[in-house]
Write a protein that binds this DNA or RNA. Structure first.
Lengths: 249, 249
DNA sequence: CTTATTACAGCAATATATTGCAAAAATAAG
DNA sequence: CTTATTTTTGCAATATATTGCTGTAATAAG
């Protein structure tokens, strides 16, 4: 294994988990701890991660994500992202809306997977461009400073011209009766357009968001094909969805 | 076996596996490792792959951080960016093509300045979104992994619908007779569209790029309104442009 | 304080890089 | 076609880099 490969592996791990242990990496790559330590030292000197006692942690964290917001519920987002991955087949065309859960998914898409990804999200596009076999198409438009996604007429226009296999629709509020809702009207318009452009709509949703309600409505629950939470599908919290026409994952 | 054939073989292997070992290639092609090493050195110098200890690795999928991407000529780019700034008036609508010089310009745009900025460049958009008073509109489309800008039909389409006050057109090759040229045909199409969408075209150009020539033509020198280099306007290197209808800055 | 883990420096074995050189191959010139 | 020149290639000698291991120092944790 080339040194450069180890470096990339480590950076990738740090990117996903925000931290790594020397011993874990050494086991995974089947090299000595010293080698990993020296690798991490180099990466530290190149300011690509921060070397700490016992391993390394990510510098980034606050780069693209609104500072402070994260870390909490990162576990859950990871679990959800992993489940999302299982729905994607090589060669498909997918659409990723914004949101941190989808960003986690983007990080985890394997480089060697051949995929076409549409997205209006800047941080997600940045992630995807590091993956060699993924074709990235940015849905352009006026950029929202908060959410870092493109919104407005031209974005919606561009969406109207595509039809993808799966849309992963970041979900902030999911109410069993009222459906999907949003705080921002512009984003509602985007999400409506995304649903319209997709054969299959997947809603990755942290369970704590279930039952919450915002000002504007995106769609009814029934328009979602798959609901993915960090819970097991038989969890009582998901009871409300069990006799609906939705796949729980 | 011809050198060119080996080069193609190596690039192909790197394309498929993202990495190669010197010894593997030497065995497969039945030449000495020295030969392969020299081949890889050449390909490295042509920036077609990255030579590492023991082999070579793909460039494509490493972009975790644009750090290390030539710091050389940053002085000049800064000077140029400062000059560009002087052309921008509050309230204007501007268009920034890709390129590191324009990225420097984007970094320097003052936050309190009210501006509308169009750009097809991912890193530039990321920069601009940190500025509170700048409205950012991303020209979406298929993303080029190399240049990190949107290219192709939908990007050009979106450009066709706008008319901005000033376009800052990153310039890699400026020849007094042959005009502006580019290596990549897709980018040529983008730049043509950008010129067409702008009332005023400014060409920020490191002086060492003056006189160079690439495969595809963007436009004649006369279509540029302002040429900005790091040199003083009376520098002899700019003589060729002095009786043209161009403002030198 | 004590213990367990991790960091670091130095060393040796191995792998890779570099250099100069000569033979072979390709190219240019007559 | 022949000869001279340049480029390419493989080889050998030497230099450098990488890696895992050792023993010892530093650090974290109870």
């Amino acid at each position: 294994m080339l040194k450069e490969e180890r470096h990339r592996f480590i950076l990738n791990e740090v990117g996903i988990h925000n931290r790594v242990l020397l011993t874990d990496i050494a086991n995974l790559l089947d090299v000595s701890v010293d080698t990993v330590r020296r690798d991490i030292k180099e990466l530290h000197n190149s300011k690509l991660l921060k070397k700490v006692h016992g391993g390394a942690i990510s510098l980034g964290f606050n780069n693209y994500n609104p500072i402070g917001k994260t870390i909490y519920s990162l576990e859950e987002k990871s679990r959800i992202a992993e489940k999302c991955l299982s729905l994607i087949k090589e060669g498909q065309v997918i659409l990723l809306s914004g949101g941190t859960t989808n960003l986690e998914l983007a990080k985890r898409l394997p480089s060697k997977f051949k995929l076409t990804c549409f997205t209006p999200s800047l941080p997600i596009a940045v992630q995807l461009l590091t993956k060699s076999n993924i074709e990235v198409i940015f849905i352009g438009g006026r950029m929202s400073k908060d959410s870092q996604i493109a919104i407005g007429g031209s974005a919606i226009n561009m969406l109207s011209e595509i039809k993808v296999d799966i849309c992963f629709l970041g979900t902030n509020s999911l109410h069993p009766v009222e459906g999907l809702t949003e705080f921002d009207w512009e984003i509602v318009q985007m999400k409506k357009a995304m649903i319209h452009s997709s054969r299959k709509v997947v809603s990755p949703c942290i369970s704590e968001k279930i039952g919450s309600l915002q000002r504007f409505k995106i769609c009814d629950v029934e328009e979602i094909d798959v609901l993915i939470t960090e819970l097991e599908p038989w969890d009582v919290k998901l009871n409300a969805f069990k006799n609906m026409n939705i796949q729980l994952l």
